[in-house]
Every structure is written in structure tokens, then in C-alpha cells.
Nucleic acid binder design. Structure first.
Lengths: 83, 83, 83, 83
DNA sequence: TCAGATAAAATCGCGC
DNA sequence: GCGCGATTTTATCTGA
């Protein structure tokens, strides 16, 4: 009986994790759909969706580079005892 | 000058689209990170993350099947003039 | 000269891979075209191509579900030390 | 009864189409998997799979261009009454 | 390294 | 005949 009780608790716990994840994945999917909608809206406004994708991708790379540069600067400053 | 004005408007419009998309992608990334955290939490609670992933995947397929069945039923009914 | 020889060998090897892949892609395209022909034939026989596509899609999902169920059963059994 | 017979025939016919398509899709999938295997083999031989993909894609474009050029030539010849 | 998920691109069939 | 939406396919990326 304690085994049964133990498994129930585990089962409830597992179920909770699964449901939390499913909820979050659902939210994520909603946002992904919204992004698609925005691309469609941009397209219907006369913009080329593919071009916007390129711009977004470029800025993503730039942002990554900016963070990288910042991290290196931190490193230099730390090495110089200036943090 | 009117061209410049026109392009500014277009530029502002484009910028607005890009920024909206970037905001949404950022939100999406936050959720993805949260999901990762939940898996980590489940793992630290003693669950096998791989099994949870499998369960979530299985339920995703179940849901896809449900939707597919529903869609084909609609199609059948429509074909039979019963919609 | 040995470099040239080396590169030639690599080149021949690369060429062989590329040509194998191209042959296979060509075969694949032939099948894709054949599938299109079958849909056209079905349509000309009075069937609704859309419905056939739906049926095929539905059966594909069924198959995916069957495999997924099997996979998770394996995982359960393994987790229970019953493999 | 004739209706039943008619529908059976239709059913058999439909089933035949579905099965033919499924068989072909299966064949197609096998080839797709084989292609993946070849890429994996090339990779294990020391080639960069991404580069091979680029080469294959480039040659695909070249081939399309060659056919296009050929078609245009045909057109010219036909216009000149030289076919 | 490997699969599995996601994003991006290409393709196709349908409607107008 | 052509764009448009939907599906399929390809490519990239992430996480085990």
C-alpha cells in the first residue's frame, strides 16, 4: 500500500511536470504563430518577408557580437584589475 | 524630398515590424529557457528528463492524431453533403 | 606534385559523392513525379485528390502514433528494469 | 444492392490509390534516408557535409540554367523555322 | 556526436 | 496564368 501511495505521489508529480511543460510549449507555439502573422502583415503591407527575416537575422548576429565584445572587454578590465 | 519623406515612413514602418518581431522572438526564447529550467527541476527531483520528453512527444502525437481525425471527418461529411 | 596527387584523389572522391547524391536525388524526383501522376489519375477517375491526400496524411499520423506508443512502451519497460 | 456494389468498387479503387501512393512515399523516404547515409559517409571520410550540400545545390542551379538556355535556344530556332 | 526540434526555403495545387 | 496559402523539404541549431 505504501508503494501504491508512493507511486501516486510520483504520478501526480510527473503529471504536473508534463502539464507545466505542455502549457509552456503551447505558449511558445502561440508566439511563433504570432510571429508568422506579423510576417504576413508585413508582406501585405508591401514588404518582402524574406528581407525582413534577413534583417532580423543580421541584427541577431550583431547583438551576439556586441555581447561577445562586451564580455571580452570585461575580461580585459578584470585582467587589469579594473573591474 | 517627398521621396525622402516616403522612405522615412517606409523605414519607420519596417523598423516597427523588425522590433515587434525581435520582441516576440525574445519572449519565445524566455519561454524556451523556462522549459529547460522545468526539465532541470524535474531531473533534480529524481525524474528522468528523457522519459518526460518522450511522454510530452507522445501526447503531442496523440493531439496531432485527434486533430487529423477531426479534419478528415469534416472532409467526409462535406463530401457527403452533410455539413 | 604529391599535393596535386593528393588533391586529385580527394577531388575524385568528392566528385564520386556528389554524383552518387545527384543520382539519388534524381531517383527521388522521379518518384515524386510518379506520385503526382497517381494523384492526377485518381482525380481523372473521379476521386477528390484533396481527400486522398487527407487519408494518406491520416494514415501517416496513425503510423507515427503506433511507433511513438511502441517507443514509449520500450522506455517504460526499460525504466522498470523489464527489458 | 447495386449501390453497395458500386461503393465497394469505389472503395477498392480508392484503397488501391492510397496504397500505391503509400508505397511510393515509402520508396521516396528510403531514398531520402540513403542520401542522408551518403552524407554521413562523406562526413566520416573527412568531407564537410555542408560543403557537399552547397556543391550539389550549385550544380542543381547550373543544370536548371542549362535546361533554360537550351529551351530558349529551341525557341529561337523554332521562331526562325529551323527546328 | 547524435537525434530531435525549429526555422527557413521551396514547391505545389488551387483559386481568381 | 499567377499569386497565395498550404504542405513538404531542407538546413540549422540545440540538447542528451
Amino acid at each position: 500500500m505504501s508503494d501504491i501511495g508512493h507511486n501516486s505521489v510520483n504520478g501526480d508529480h510527473l503529471r504536473a511536470f508534463v502539464e507545466r511543460i505542455e502549457k509552456m510549449e503551447s505558449d511558445k507555439r502561440v508566439i511563433a504563430d504570432d510571429i508568422k502573422d506579423v510576417y504576413a502583415e508585413a508582406k501585405s503591407t508591401g514588404f518582402d518577408a524574406k528581407m525582413i527575416r534577413k534583417i532580423v537575422a543580421m541584427r541577431r548576429v550583431d547583438e551576439a557580437k556586441r555581447k561577445e565584445d562586451e564580455a571580452i572587454l570585461e575580461l580585459y578590465l578584470a585582467a587589469l584589475g579594473m573591474e
